[in-house]
Simulated scan of single mutants.
Amino acid sequence: MSSVQPCGTSDDDRRPPLNDILSIVRRGLAIEPKRLPSWLFYDARGSALFEQICEQPEYYLTRCEVALMEQHAGSIADSLGSEVRLVEYGSGSGLKTRMLLRQMDRPVAYVPVEISATPLSQSMRRLAEEFPALTLQPLCADFSKPLRLPIPPCAPRRTVLYFPGSTIGNFEAGDAVKLLRKMRNEMGDAGGILVGVDLKKDVTRIEAAYNDRAGVTAEFTLNMLARLNREIGSDFNLSAFRHRARYNPMAGRIETHLVSQAEQQVKVGSSRVNFRSDEVIQVEYSCKYSLEDFAALAAKAGLAVMRSWTDPQQMFSVQYLVRTSAVAR
């Protein structure tokens, strides 16, 4: 049977206490422009809605990445080598992970890092059924913070950090570099990073992906406010805000906001927060890169692109990064 080791119990391995969420929200709504962190999307409802987003016809990202994995999973696994410990940031449903694991040669362990416990446990059940010989070491944690990875059952040849989807695009350039540096430290000298990167393309195609006709993305964005109402006792009127996602060509990114529909006040803790009509809360960036753009970003973190793969339509890429010094050798 598969060896499934329990999640850790350190402070890093739990979502922030309610008092911490309240202070984060207070600070974010006190600045100009107002801003809330995108991890607030991912309560149980938000995670389920994101899975629905991935199924929408406008949301090309998942389809393109799955097509890429169908075509190149064997080549990617060959590049990673044998006896790898695979650590995945934000594991979610694990579809692309299963495609990769099927091709990998004698992986030592799989460590999914996921802040939301429900999708993590669901993914573990599926993986345990399909890969009974693989050691599974789930870690309930925020991958953007320093991680204490569980001890593997035996020493791997290398640790590869897997960051699929286009989540790296949710970080502004400076923060993306900081995250890649953190990953560089966690992977060790012989390790690597396998990262999904959404590529620049027609603006209409990009914007449609974040404004699906069924309104699932809008519901996902507004669910952040529903979560705050439930968890910290705020009184956001969801009908008084709307979802807006636009592409900023100068910054090369989708910028997602919650837009106040009227002049209003919202209770946050013991205080009231004022909103002007049309005032926005910035809730997410989704940066898009050319292959050259991302190579330059990785270089700032001391990393080099060893190999990259794209889907048949050249819309999405998966890139394998190693230490710059490893390429120089």
Rank of each mutant, 00 (worst) to 15 (best):
V4Q: 00
S10D: 06
D11A: 11
R15L: 07
P16I: 00
N19E: 13
V25N: 07
G28N: 14
P33Q: 04
P33M: 09
R35H: 12
L40K: 01
A44C: 08
I53G: 05
I53C: 06
Q56C: 04
E65Q: 07
V66R: 07
I76T: 03
G81T: 05
V87T: 09
L95S: 02
R102S: 15
Q103T: 07
V108H: 01
V108W: 11
V113M: 10
P119F: 06
L120G: 02
S121G: 01
C140K: 10
C140V: 02
A141S: 15
R148W: 03
T159Y: 06
Y162W: 08
K178D: 11
L199H: 06
K200R: 12
V203S: 03
T204V: 11
A208E: 10
N211A: 10
R213T: 09
N223Y: 11
M224T: 10
L225G: 09
R227Q: 12
L228W: 07
R230H: 10
M250H: 11
G252M: 14
E255K: 11
T256A: 11
V259C: 14
Q261W: 00
Q265M: 07
S270A: 08
F275E: 01
C287H: 08
C287T: 00
L291A: 04
E292F: 03
A295L: 00
A298W: 01
V305P: 08
Y320Q: 08
